[in-house]
Amino acid sequence: MTFQWIQIPYALLTLFIILNYGMLMTALIQKIGARVGGRYGIPIWQNYIDLLKNIALRSKISHGVMFYLGPVFRLTGGIGLILFVPTIYGSVMHQNFSFAGDLILALYFVFFGTLGMALGAAESGHPHSAIGVSRGLSQVTAAELPLALGVFAISLQYQTLNITDIVAAQQGSIFNWTLFTNPLATVAAMFAFVGTMMRAPFDVVLAPQEIPIGPPTEYHSSYLALMQTNRVLYPIAKTVIYMNLFFGGATSWPEFFVKIFAIYMVSVFIGVVYPRFRVEQSIQFFLKWGLPVGVLAILMV
């Protein structure tokens, strides 16, 4: 695959669809949560209003260059992650820029935004930011571990690191999905999924009551607007990777919407059931449960 200029508008289209889907889906999920609690919940378009409001704020402050660039790094990470992964299998339009690199690129690019954001938050000089980053990094290093093992297991299984090839191998029947052909790897990866979605029980990083509110404590206005945008893009970008690797990918937008929603809801369900872990508890959790499953997965392949 090589680059053609037409890919740029195609990629922007993908981005546009995912952005809007993300806005609505996260609001919908909040609404579901509210309904479960007996509330009416936010309007479905609330995310747009909040975004607009933050853009509309007139003043902002800056703690320095890295502080200013932090949200830029963050959103670049989110957008890049979407664009480095093919979105719709078989569609020429939504292959995005996946010619630039394979699965490994996607997996490591996940850290781009995290690192940039951490640096930006750090420059604010706020101890809560630093504490949040310390917690977040500690937790994510343990949480990503089962994913790495799961990915290793399936790339051994399919003998490729090319995402498109992995999706192709899962076509035909629902039983060709990695979920069924390699359930251990899938379970291992889902540990990581739940662990990195910033929902309970793994949301001590933000800990609103305790260290308000972790890394983004000092961010506001248009910075926050960028971060909000990323907040809806990034989880979907991550979920896309999981979908492609373990759940057969998507051949059309409707399938994409349904699958993303379903996978996303896994972390929501777990989140509403379990209370928050402390950081060392979640690290130990991943080492005690996630790691063995991952190890089993690579041994069984």
Binding site: A34, G37, Y40, I42, P208, E218, Y219, H220
Partner: peptide, 22 residues
């Protein structure tokens, strides 16, 4: 914040840091 009054439906929410509050 409770189901009885549910201010969220008016787009109202609470933020822990003044930077993000209006």
């Amino acid at each position: 914040m409770t189901p009885r009054f549910d201010a969220y439906r008016y787009g109202i929410q609470w933020r822990p840091t003044p930077r993000q509050a209006n």
